[in-house]
Design a protein around this nucleic acid. Structure first.
Lengths: 149, 149
DNA sequence: CTAGTTGCAAAAGCTTTGCATGCAT
DNA sequence: ATGCATGCAAAGCTTTTGCAACTAG
């Protein structure tokens, strides 16, 4: 809820994990937490350039990758052409408006497909759920490999 | 269920909508329907090249776009780096296995997050639901514009 | 003949990589 | 001094676009 508090905690977690928090990285974190727009790389880059004119896209990319690996942010591929980023809180689903192009957060109220509040407020044209994990076959192989060794 | 039947029906629908079914397009359709792998563009292209050595990636792209616009196939962005394609039937959700890299179909059994069969069979690490449509604000604007005119 | 499709090549993004420079501990 | 982060440039991919040649009805 409280963004300032969210940011403080994220920074604390990163520090404890030994991440060097350079001004550039701080700027990326701050921009991400403060924006509720799920910005793409270029948006983040353009915004930070105003404060740090020397920052390069490569730094933004590497920072985002770092934060993603640390589990502090989520990479969204809801837009086909470029990745967007979301500092994770409790929320989880996303609505891409085909009219204004914004990406809105959607509370998980049971199922995204039958979520009444969602359907009542917005016009839902399509739902895609992407599940990431390990499939049953690979799990079986894992088990076999373990039992052999 | 019956792929031959699915394909026949898809072709029938396309014909009725006035789509020219060239050999290249037929090859794309056939490959898509027959494969249960959710192939990416290059996989489709490489496969068809064996039969039609002269086919170009551009033709594959344009055919896929056409089929997508016709609502006959679905473009998946479950992989961040390239689009994959799925001839739509009744099913809807997808699991990307981080071990073997395959994309598996997942029946919608209620909610993808709490789907018991899914959780029992595979290891679910992350779920992202993408909803496409029009947000409440744009719907309101639409209504205002209509009432004005 | 006409409209639409194909194939090639070039171009346009987005993203990654390599490397020298620079900063911080 | 050492290791890491930065910034720049180049390269790698996927995807789009333009255009001439071709094909089908």
């Amino acid at each position: 809820m409280n963004k300032r508090e969210d940011m403080k905690q994220m920074i604390e977690r990163l520090k404890q994990r030994g991440v060097t928090l350079t001004p550039q990285r701080m700027a990326v974190i701050e921009f991400l937490i403060k924006s509720s727009n799920h910005p793409c790389v270029d948006t983040i880059y353009q915004a930070i350039k105003k404060k740090y004119p020397s920052i390069s896209p490569a730094t933004v990319y590497s920072t985002l990758q770092l934060l993603k690996e640390m589990g502090e942010i989520q990479e969204l591929h809801i837009r086909g052409d470029r990745a967007c980023y979301d500092p994770i809180t409790w929320r989880h689903h996303h609505l891409l408006c085909r009219s204004c192009g914004r990406i809105l957060d959607v509370d998980i109220d049971g199922c995204p497909i039958t979520n009444n509040k969602l359907i009542r407020e917005h016009r839902v044209e399509e739902v895609q759920a992407y599940i990431y994990g390990v499939c049953s076959e690979c799990l079986e192989k894992e088990r076999d490999d373990k039992s052999k060794s």
